[in-house]
Design a protein around this nucleic acid. Sequence first.
DNA 1: AGACTAACGCAACTTTTGTTGTGTTAGATT
DNA 2: AATCTAACACAACAAAAGTTGCGTTAGTCT
Lengths: 207, 207
Amino acid sequence: MNAREPRDAAGPGRVRPGGRTARVRDAVRGATLAELAEHGYRGLTVEGVAARSGVHKTTVYRRWGDADGLVADALEIASTEPWPIPDTGTLDGDLRALARLVRDGFADPREGPVSRAFVLAAGQSDAAAHALHRFFARRHEQSAVVVERAVARGDVPPGTDAAEVVRIAVAPLYYRLFVTGEPPDEAAADRAAAAACAAARAGALVP
Amino acid sequence: MNAREPRDAAGPGRVRPGGRTARVRDAVRGATLAELAEHGYRGLTVEGVAARSGVHKTTVYRRWGDADGLVADALEIASTEPWPIPDTGTLDGDLRALARLVRDGFADPREGPVSRAFVLAAGQSDAAAHALHRFFARRHEQSAVVVERAVARGDVPPGTDAAEVVRIAVAPLYYRLFVTGEPPDEAAADRAAAAACAAARAGALVP
DNA sequence: AGACTAACGCAACTTTTGTTGTGTTAGATT
DNA sequence: AATCTAACACAACAAAAGTTGCGTTAGTCT
């Protein structure tokens, strides 16, 4: 076999990280985000990104494969930047701030279409799905601290599944956005957070 | 204006409901479901459905528009058939049965890909999104009775938002399926149901 | 029974999307 | 600074997706 990987098709050029390759990569990534913000996921095409970035379309096809590859790559970047974990002093306050962060992100005219595209792309390509999986694994990990603090305060029973609390706090928002088509308002975010908090307090999330 | 609707592009031919038109419609609908079950949403093409149904592709394009139109139409059918609302005697039992019903549906090799396609299609076309919206509005309506019974029993405070209880019970499953890529098992369904029940009991869902 | 016409089938065409072969460019290596 | 080669640009091509015009078929109406 003699395993050898002369190039990795998707994402950053590891073999030749400097100069032109990096410039092309950044141009394409920037164009991808811009196109997503303007036309949404459904309006994202390889040719559109190629034209906007000034990079030839064959180059984009070779390195990223298709439109979903572009999104998966953009998602990889997004997953590196952390988000502001709230610390309000109460679990309810923290979860509410978290839920509002999610809701506001999707409601934002600029950020919304991009975030939306990440989820939609995951439904289309395995690469995007894996990237999104890693993205959320990281977020759940980062968010766990709000539950740990609540345990330390004696607000919720020890052994409470932190990731599950966060899931229940944000899941109704995604459910409304991507399944039922009921765009969530602030009140919806607050209710979801309150429900997760109540469930955790009642000890329903101790496996 | 003189509003007149000579034909409705998507779905049942209302103008000429008998004979050939109906035969074509049923053949296409059947082929759509079969193709979805076999190849999933991503493998669904207009030409594939046309070939399988024996209907010419031009006809499919004209009546259904595109692949998402086919899914939207199939969804319209699915939303008419009711589902078995459980009655176990307790809110926790009812919600658990409901959540398991959802989970098992997606886990089923035949049913799963079709249900999955319904959600994915909603992310792609407005017609499918609206159809799915109606589908879930109906389901939430039908499911409300389990909460009403719990109120009557004195299990949860009066004024509890029934639809919201159901949303919280099933949302984590959809969240795992379509967002984080963590396929839910039975335990996940039970936890989600338990959390919704605990939140309702605590009075967190009384607006 | 005959006339009417919505809906369908068919073939040819256009557009969009994706691929392949080849020469060129510009970081990297010594 | 001379050499090497991964990565890119370009053009020409191939395949899939979608459209259009027109003749035909089969329910429907009188």
